[in-house]
């Protein structure tokens, strides 16, 4: 009888450890799953002018002195990526090299415009430090208000006809690229695309 108890106890220990390890493995798999199915795209923001509407028109003087026209028919027949940033936003800083490489590879159809507001001296020092002097850089609180930008970095993609094609909070390269794919696929955001696809599959 005592032998049986010892043996059964040992078997139970093995089973308990086995179950513990199984639960751990399952929890890890669930974690990976959550990460995989999280939408890769820019987080759509519902405030401000909607996708599909005409972009508000602005005529602004860039930091460099040139006049920048935003919204309306593009004379260069190009789309515009309006990128809202601030020198004090760390995520914005990490995106600047990515935006530079996007401008190089997509210059055939895309212009990138940086938008910010605040002290001119700080902004000029920032532009020089980040080596983005070749980009149009506008300072306009009105522009941010027109798009109701609440969080940075925020990007708006406007096509050559002045229509907003995609917009959202962009924290990394995938988010920026999701704006371009949203425009290509004619949806307002990757979230909408995913939801359409799910409904189609159902």
């Amino acid at each position: 009888m005592e032998n049986l108890l010892v043996v059964s106890n040992l078997i139970l220990w093995v089973l308990v450890i086995g179950l513990g390890v199984t639960v751990l493995a399952l929890a890890r798999q669930v974690g990976v799953l959550y990460e995989r199915i999280a939408p890769a795209g820019a987080l759509m923001v519902l405030q401000g002018p909607a996708v599909g509407e005409l972009a508000p028109q602005f005529e602004l003087e860039a930091v460099s002195g040139e006049t920048i026209l935003l919204g309306g028919l593009s004379q260069a027949k190009k789309s515009t990526l309006l990128f809202f940033l601030s020198p004090t936003c760390p995520v914005c800083n990490t995106l600047i090299p990515i935006l530079k490489s996007i401008q190089r590879s997509e210059s055939a159809w895309l212009d990138i415009v940086f938008a910010s507001d605040g002290d001119l001296g700080t902004q000029k020092a920032f532009i020089t430090k980040k080596d983005i002097t070749s980009f149009p850089y506008v300072l306009s609180p009105q522009l941010g208000m027109a798009y109701q930008v609440a969080k940075l970095p925020f990007a708006v993609l406007v096509d050559e006809h002045g229509v907003i094609r995609a917009k959202g909070l962009t924290n990394n390269r995938e988010h920026l690229e999701s704006l371009f794919s949203a425009m290509e696929q004619g949806v307002s955001s990757i979230q909408e695309f995913m939801s359409n696809r799910q409904q189609g599959a159902a």
Binding site: W13, V16, I17, G20, V21, V23, L24, L26, A27, R28, V30, G31, Y34
Partner: peptide, 15 residues
């Protein structure tokens, strides 16, 4: 057993 369980609980809190 304790370590496996603790790691599992932590993983759930990460999730």
């Amino acid at each position: 057993a304790v370590m496996a369980l603790y790691a599992a609980i932590n993983q759930l809190m990460v999730n």
